[in-house]
Write a protein that binds this DNA or RNA. Structure first.
Lengths: 137, 137
DNA sequence: AGTTTATAAGACTAAATAAGTCCTATAACC
DNA sequence: GGTTATAGGACTTATTTAGTCTTATAAACT
């Protein structure tokens, strides 16, 4: 229950990997092999992260991706939005949702939005760097 | 992203409904109709909640379910466990998981477990009653 | 110039999970 | 014994997620 998208998982793996390379580039193939992630899938993920300037891309031989931001500046919320869209714990929280059969007499929208906001806050205040710190259990 | 199971949603709806009935019973049909939830599905949900004594069941005519606990005593974590199993933000957190292809060199287990624990804590400390309070936004 | 390495991005398919249905049994009450 | 209601297993359908396939573009090296 409450699985986080594999894309996000793979995104974190890639960011953590790039962090170990400092300013050098790593190709999608290199990252994918090291973590045994499907290469074409990771490719999409890197592209998405590039489009929001979390990483930068270098074409051609010896090219690849490198970090464009400090891991401490990348919140889980940013990553989630980038790779898997907005957090909506319930369908009825989707913008423009008009499918709720109860409408005026709905008991669940508010509770779900309370929960949603709590999760958003958690994701907002947790950076990828914070996940790396291997203490909290 | 991060959708909560519909079962949990329906469970909350049912609990909130029962709370308005005080000590009277409400049948699955009554609750399902009021919230436009599929009756047979809600039936399973009520059974599960009965099995962990969140609600009690009364057979026969004029029977149904009633609350067996105060909403403040039912945490989201309890409800989640009851209706949708344990919270595991990543596959590799499943007990007995041996499918991780990286194993000894895995960079993601710890970060995911950090996140998982944060979400569990949030669910543990949030009661159904707390969701009902319609303030926080 | 041509080959190689690598990113960019769309369309498609497969696998997994979640949601919902169907059916039969059991219990209490009138 | 008929009616109302819970109990619970087996099954089907729908939706979402994961992954593949294909083609294009860019840079570097020879």
């Amino acid at each position: 229950m409450l699985r986080v998208n594999k894309k996000i998982e793979y995104g974190i793996i890639a960011l953590l990997y790039l962090a170990t390379k400092e300013d050098k580039t790593a190709s999608v193939r290199e990252i994918a092999n090291s973590a045994k992630i499907p290469e074409t899938l990771l490719s999409k993920i890197m592209q998405a992260m590039k489009n929001v300037s979390m990483v930068s891309a270098v074409y051609g031989n010896q090219g690849g991706y490198k970090l464009a931001k400090d891991l401490a500046e990348i919140s889980l919320l940013d990553l989630t939005h980038t790779l898997a869209g907005p957090i909506e714990v319930a369908e009825c929280l989707q913008p423009g949702n008009d499918g709720c059969p109860v409408k005026l007499n709905c008991s669940i929208v508010k509770p779900m939005s309370v929960l949603n906001n709590k999760i958003i806050e958690l994701f907002q205040t947790t950076s990828v760097e914070a996940l790396r710190e291997r203490k909290a259990l």
